[in-house]
């Protein structure tokens, strides 16, 4: 079901990019990449019941890995994408030994802190550009064809289709059910022999793989990255996407990413007209308010309302 619908989405994207202005095609790519990150995040937060406030860091690790290999060693972004996913996975694996011992409050704090430490590394490590970042990152190519905005959108959504297919299989298997059991009653699950830490670790690493691969594409598509692209605010955005779509929902990730990106566009265009003094990342005010309002009014996300409507 997930796989087929993902494929349909991919076909739709591949069709509409030919009529969409290139600016909007770029946004479509961004939505796809964010959706990919959020699918991984939903596995970790929604299904396994954990918290990550540092997901932007894995996105950044993927972006920096691919970009650095491409800029410094002229390695193709195709390989860079795989390397980005692998390095993000390794970082997540190492961090999991710290983070996964903790619960709720402290886990949130630890992932937030680790995300910022990774951002400090981006800032301080001159080899990967330091504060000024990396410029002129080579794009994806097939033979002599260098990717344009359309090709990036199709690539991003192809990955979304694969990602949601894999995650969909996962959540309907014993693996996904064990995660739900862990989130509902970890000790009860452990008493049945469910190795909760091992399952949580695999999920955390998988979420980093999703984020890392998405980050690698982002680097090539944007052709320029610096540490501010992967800040704490982006992590909050990912949380918002999760919450808006519904934490325990895979399509919710796609919906959440779409809503947040669209909202960002609307705010960017409307607010300065109404309030000429608005500068900087003033959207964060609205993001915060929407996040709070969602959690109070619709804590299980938009998709919970949709599925209720379907049942009724």
């Amino acid at each position: 079901m997930y796989g087929r619908t993902g494929l349909v989405l991919l076909v739709v994207v591949a069709a509409i990019v030919w009529i969409l202005p290139s600016y909007y095609t770029g946004l479509l790519t961004l939505i796809g990449l964010y959706a990919l990150v959020t699918i991984g995040l939903n596995l970790f937060m929604g299904y396994a019941g954990q918290v990550s406030l540092g997901q932007a860091a894995f996105f950044g690790v993927g972006a920096y890995t691919s970009a650095t290999f491409a800029v410094k060693a002229n390695i193709t972004p195709w390989l860079g994408m795989v390397l980005g996913a692998i390095v993000a996975a390794l970082v997540a694996y190492a961090l999991s030994f710290v983070a996964l011992r903790l619960r709720e409050n402290l886990l949130a704090l630890a992932t937030l802190a680790l995300g910022i430490v990774i951002n400090v590394v981006f800032n301080q490590w001159d080899f990967i550009g330091g504060t000024s970042g990396l410029k002129d990152i080579p794009g994806f190519t097939i033979g002599s064809f260098t990717f344009d905005q359309r090709a990036y959108a199709i690539l991003a959504w192809a990955l979304v289709a694969v990602g949601i297919w894999f995650a969909g299989n996962l959540v309907r298997s014993s693996f996904g059910r064990s995660l739900i059991a862990i989130s509902a009653g970890e000790l009860g699950a452990q008493a049945l022999g469910v190795h909760s830490e091992r399952l949580k670790r695999q999920t955390f690493v998988l979420s980093a793989v999703y984020a890392g691969a998405a980050g690698a594409i982002y680097a090539s598509q944007a052709s320029y990255i610096d540490p501010t692209s992967f800040s704490f605010l982006l992590s909050v955005n990912f949380v918002l996407m999760s919450v808006i779509g519904g934490l325990r929902s895979l399509w919710g990730a796609v919906i959440g990413a779409t809503v947040v990106v669209a909202l960002g566009q609307i705010l960017q265009n409307v607010v300065p007209v109404v309030l000429p003094s608005a500068r900087g990342d003033f959207q964060s005010f609205f993001l915060g308010v929407i996040l709070i309002a969602m959690l109070i009014l619709l804590p299980r996300g938009i998709t919970s309302r949709l599925s209720e409507a379907r049942r009724a």
Binding site: V51, L53, E104, N105, A108, L233, V236, V239, V243, L275, S277, A278, R279, G280, D281, F282, Q283, S284, F285, F286, L287, G288, V289, I290, L291, I292, L295, I296
Partner: peptide, 18 residues
């Protein structure tokens, strides 16, 4: 509740910008 206080954090920062 963690997410709500996180929302407060970004909202207050955005408000200060305004």
């Amino acid at each position: 509740l963690i997410f709500i206080t996180l929302g407060l954090d970004v909202a207050l920062r955005g408000l200060a910008l305004f």
